[in-house]
Simulated scan of single mutants.
Amino acid sequence: MEEKLNLVEEWDKTFPQSDKVNHRKITFHNRYGITLAADLYEPKKAESKLPAIAVCGPFGAVKEQSSGLYAQTMAERGFLTIAFDPSFTGESGGSPRYVASPDINTEDFQAAVDFLSVQDNVDPEKIGIIGICGWGGMALNAAAIDTRIKATVASTMYDMTRVNAKGYFDAEDSENAQYEKRKALNVQRTADYRSGEYARAGGVVDPLPEDAPFFVKDYYDYYKTSRGYHKRSLNSNDGWNVTSSLPFLNMPILQYSSEIYSAVLIVHGEKAHSCYFGKDAFAKLTGDNKELMIIPGAVHTDLYDKVDVIPFDKLQTFFTENLK
Rank of each mutant, 00 (worst) to 15 (best):
Met1Ala: 15
Ile34Cys: 04
Ala37Tyr: 04
Ala38Glu: 09
Leu40Phe: 10
Lys49Met: 05
Ala61Gln: 03
Ser67Gly: 01
Gly68Asp: 07
Leu69Gly: 01
Leu69Trp: 05
Ala71Pro: 02
Ala71Glu: 10
Glu76Gly: 10
Thr81Gln: 06
Thr81Val: 02
Ala83Ile: 12
Phe84Asp: 02
Gly90Asp: 10
Ser92Glu: 06
Pro96Arg: 07
Tyr98Ala: 15
Ser101Met: 10
Ser101Lys: 13
Pro102Met: 07
Phe109His: 04
Asp114Leu: 03
Ser117Met: 07
Ser117His: 07
Val118Glu: 15
Asp123Ile: 05
Lys126Phe: 06
Ile129Arg: 03
Trp135Lys: 11
Ala142Asn: 02
Ala144Gly: 11
Thr156Pro: 02
Asp159Tyr: 04
Ala165Arg: 15
Asp170Arg: 14
Ala184His: 11
Thr190Arg: 15
Ala191Ile: 07
Gly196His: 03
Pro209Ile: 11
Pro209Ser: 00
Pro213Phe: 07
Tyr219Glu: 05
Thr225Ile: 03
His230Ala: 09
Leu234Phe: 13
Thr243Asn: 14
Leu246Arg: 07
Asn250Phe: 09
Met251His: 08
Gln255Ile: 13
Ser258His: 15
Ser258Arg: 12
Glu270Met: 10
Ser274Pro: 04
Tyr276Glu: 00
Lys279Phe: 00
Lys279Ser: 06
Ala281Lys: 05
Leu285Gln: 03
Thr286Asp: 09
Asn289Gly: 04
Lys290Trp: 05
Ile295Cys: 02
Gly297Ser: 14
Asp302Phe: 01
Lys306Thr: 09
